[in-house]
Design a protein around this nucleic acid. Structure first.
Length: 839
RNA sequence: GCGAGAGUGGCGGAAUUGGCAGACGCACUGGACUUAGGAUCCAGCGGGAUAACCGUGGGGGUUCGACUCCCCCCUCUCGCACCA
């Protein structure tokens, strides 16, 4: 057995050993798991890829990190589920289908099979028996069921609303998918359209989504939590009604500053506000105002919210009445008021709001200070900057003199008592528009009937399958609205003529629950078996890019809560711990075809082997930070594995498989033996801390390299010493064991060559011996006035006094002490002596 | 503008959380082995006249001692951005 290896392989040849171990792991089903197991479970998951055609370096980095975690946790004794699948619906498949005159499914499944082979070449320890593709009816059937269940619970509704339209993708987008006015996918400027769409009522969970973020603060990066908090955008305040003069109408505003109500001098409405038409009805400037409104409404999101957008407005000709002081306030239409936030109407308090002040100055409207700061000069109405801070109430009738914070409460109670207003909580979060005018997505299980309206498809008729015979039209539109075989169907209720919904679901719906399906992906009777999902969920460690900080991560959190409330899940949150890995850069920029700075993983694997690629990805940078690709640095990684290979080869004839961290009697070891053994155990301690506690694989690898260097430097001496062979064998075994999650193939190979009859993939994480950490002598630093002057080696157990005395005897230190008065001496045992002197 | 994070050799990055700044690697320099070296091994590698000394974006402070803690400032990255 042993000789066979040596004869065939005295050179490190990854292209031989990697496929060999991959086949063996597969043959022995090493990574296939079930929930029927007594070990504690651990669920590690990486964000599944869109099958775009090829794996890119970003994937390699993401999945390499995940694989290290999976292999590590297995070695720690967990029953690890580590699944992989495909986020398989999406627009690129449609475009490719048009180009190649095929069906999107064909392109998608081809890509899946190619990319799966690529992933296998990287040696990832996935349980492939749990693989899923979201475009498979066996998957989206359950999503359609969830849609129906959500509908029963009022979590789904259809509404005609202004929506975000991407003119290039020819579909609507959810608010989360519009990033500063442009489409998240193609960066086209988003347009406004009025359409009837299906919405998921994520806002019902706004408060819980916000609150639970606190429970995630241990396991999630703070910035993701902050981003989600901002997105949910909770603010507490009041809704207050203002009577319109001469009309039987009220304008309701939302404000967080009800304490400034006495300072409200005019009213601003969004151009889309429902009362606008009625208010301008009799205005002599009606035509001008209408033109203004149309201009603003027609502007795209990007321009309308641009920095340099000047505040503009028009007086409607109407007044409303300030409910607390009965004053007349002119009602304006203003371009900066957003219809989608609050009530689309703002009480303007120019003295205490910068926007209102600018507007007031422009249109010469009155400014009235109602909050005077306690310190600093008193504010007057000709102020140049609005004051938003705390202070004392003035110009506020009987409330003058009160602190504004206190008044905020008081006026709230007062207004509620008089039925003029209501305390409310407002969120920026909007309901999730999931209708997409695309073909390659999960059909929404609804039939429209002239008699019965929008009728849900009965459960037993699911799945509604995407037609296999659809031909993608050249114009890029969905073929579904024209496809009679799909469209025509009897109404489930009255059996009359019905027409299927042709919109499909946002692809973010699929990714909102795939992690739960992995628990039981082949179940044909339910989305997942209760026992299986209860055992595996939640995901213990989730790993992916920061770009999903809001999108996917917020939707998934919502889905889990909704599925919990309809009885499918028992968890509150999907992902206990989240690691957001940095991007892979080349020449300082994200890799992209257009920049021509793409590094192809396949090419790297065939050149250096998967282990080297994995090692480089983990060594070059800590996981959260961006990683700069370097052709010469990957050669360094390759060089290290070669060095490890040669070292083991050289020592092979001398070594027996004694196991990592072999128990040895410290007293029987000579100096060199003890020294390497100490280094071995120190390294295990360091790597355990770095890898298991901190996921800092870069420093863990550095530690392993140090140990390899130490073995190199002592091997010639130890080869012939009494205990040397055992010390060397233990040290090498330790290196192979701790590196095995990172570079599994080469470690397995060398491990087997050392003569072990069980694989590393079934080994345990090594335990260091704290006795081995103890050194007889330690190096102590001597400082004079805080400056390093010397280093001395002293017995580890030396007393403080003796240590101080030794320091004062040190020649190099003496040079800096001579003729000076010693004021004091700081002694830190085993570390340092600082002698403080006076000139 | 608001919020978060970062700034350390030629480069990627370390530093047990207040105790040797620059681990580990890349690049580079010298040497060895060699028909050859882009393989390997050995040595060096912050600056500086290799002496003092100066060095973790800049300036102050606390401390025996500061990359680390406090205050002010500069720069960069990311997120949000008229949210009432």
């Amino acid at each position: 057995m042993k000789t066979e290896f040596i004869v065939n392989n005295n050179r490190y040849n990854p292209s031989d050993i990697e496929p060999k171990w991959q086949k063996q792991w597969e043959r022995e089903q090493c990574f296939i798991v079930t929930h029927k197991d007594n070990r504690p479970k651990y669920y590690v998951l990486e964000m599944f890829p869109y099958p775009s055609g090829r794996i890119h370096m970003g994937h390699v980095r993401n999945y390499s990190i995940g694989d290290v975690v999976a292999r590590l946790k297995r070695m720690q004794g967990f029953n690890v589920i580590h699944p992989m699948g495909w986020d398989a619906f999406g627009l690129p498949a449609e475009n490719a289908a048009i180009k190649n005159k095929t069906h999107p499914a064909e392109w998608t499944y081809q890509n899946i099979s190619y990319m799966k082979a690529e992933l296998k070449k990287l040696g990832y320890s996935y349980d492939w028996s749990k693989e899923l593709a979201t475009c498979h009816p066996g998957y989206y059937k359950w999503e359609q069921l969830f849609f129906l269940k959500f509908m029963e619970k009022g979590l789904v509704y259809r509404k005609k609303a202004p929506v975000n339209w991407c003119p290039k993708c020819l579909t609507v987008l959810a608010n989360e998918q519009v990033e500063s006015g442009v489409c998240w996918r193609c960066e086209s400027v988003v347009e406004r359209k009025e359409l009837s769409q299906w919405f998921l009522r994520i806002t019902r969970y706004a408060e819980e989504l916000l609150e639970c973020l606190d429970s995630l603060s241990q396991g999630w990066p703070e910035r993701v939590i902050t981003m989600q908090k901002n997105w949910i955008g909770k603010s507490t305040g009041m809704e207050i009604d203002f009577q319109v003069e001469g009309l039987d109408k009220k304008i309701r505003v939302f404000t967080t500053r009800q304490d400034t109500l006495f300072g409200a001098t005019f009213m601003s409405l969004a151009p889309e506000h429902e009362l606008v038409q009625e208010l301008i009805q009799d205005s002599p400037d009606k035509n001008q105002i209408t033109a203004f409104i149309n201009k603003v409404i027609r502007m795209d999101q990007l321009d309308r919210t641009a920095d340099n957008m000047e505040k503009e407005g028009f007086f409607t000709g109407k007044y409303c009445i300030n409910p607390v002081n009965g004053e007349k306030m002119p009602v304006f239409i203003a371009n900066f008021v957003l219809v989608e936030y609050g009530t689309g109407a703002v009480m303007a308090v120019p003295a205490h709001d910068q926007r209102d002040l600018e507007f007031a100055r422009k249109y010469d409207l009155p400014v009235r200070v109602v909050v005077q700061p306690e310190d600093g000069g008193a504010l007057s109405d000709d102020m140049e900057k609005a004051y938003a801070g705390p202070g004392t109430m003035v110009n506020s009738g009987q409330f003058d003199g009160m602190g504004n914070e206190q008044f905020k409460e008081a006026i709230a109670d007062f207004l509620e008592e008089k039925a003029l207003g209501k305390k409310t909580v407002n969120y920026r979060l909007r309901d999730w528009n999931i209708s997409r005018q695309r073909f390659w997505g999960a059909p929404i299980p609804i039939v429209y009937c002239e008699q019965c309206g929008a009728v849900p498809v009965p459960e037993e008729d699911l799945p509604i399958i995407l037609p296999q015979n659809a031909i993608m039209p050249e114009d890029g539109k969905s073929p579904l609205p024209e496809l009679k075989s799909f469209l025509d169907t009897p109404c489930p209720q009255c059996k009359g003529k019905g027409r299927r919904e042709t919109d499909t679901m946002d692809t973010f719906v699929e990714s909102s629950w795939y992690f739960a399906r992995y628990a039981d992906p082949r179940n044909e009777n339910a989305p997942f078996d209760k026992k299986a999902s209860k055992y595996w969920l939640p995901v213990d460690q989730y790993i992916g890019g920061i770009e999903h900080a809001i999108l996917h991560l917020l939707y998934s959190r919502f889905f889990v809560k909704a599925l919990r409330d309809i009885g499918y899940l028992e968890i509150d949150e999907p992902f206990s711990n989240l690691l957001t890995q940095g991007m892979v850069l080349k020449d300082g920029a994200k890799m992209s075809k257009s920049k021509g700075n793409v590094v192809d993983p396949d090419e790297m694997i065939s050149k250096f082997g998967a282990d080297t690629v994995r090692l480089f990805c983990l060594f070059a940078s800590p996981p959260e930070k961006d990683l700069e690709w370097s052709d010469s640095a990957i050669e360094g990684a390759s060089r290290f594995l070669n060095r490890l290979w040669r070292l083991t080869m050289e020592l092979l004839p001398e070594l027996k498989p004694v196991g990592p961290c072999k128990v040895l009697d410290q007293l029987s070891l000579n100096h060199a033996e003890k020294s390497l053994r100490t280094k071995e155990h120190e390294t295990i301690m360091k790597i355990t801390r770095d890898m298991i506690d901190k996921f800092q694989f870069n420093t863990a690898i550095a530690g392993a390299m140090e140990l390899v260097n130490a073995i190199y430097h002592s091997k010639d001496e130890l080869k012939d010493s009494f205990n040397g062979q055992e010390v060397l064998s233990s040290a090498i075994s330790s290196v192979l064991t701790v590196l095995s999650p990172i570079t599994p193939h080469v470690c397995e190979e060398l491990w087997a060559m050392l003569g072990y009859d069980y694989p590393l993939s079934q080994s345990s994480w090594p335990q260091y011996d704290s006795l081995a950490l103890q050194r007889d002598e330690v190096l102590v630093v001597i400082q004079v006035n805080g400056k390093l002057r010397s280093k001395i080696s002293v017995p580890a157990d030396i007393s403080r006094e003796k240590l101080g005395q030794s320091a004062l005897k040190d020649e190099k230190a003496l040079k800096h002490i001579q003729n000076k008065e010693i004021i004091k001496t700081i002694i830190i045992p085993q570390k340092l002596v600082n002698i403080v002197v006076k000139d």
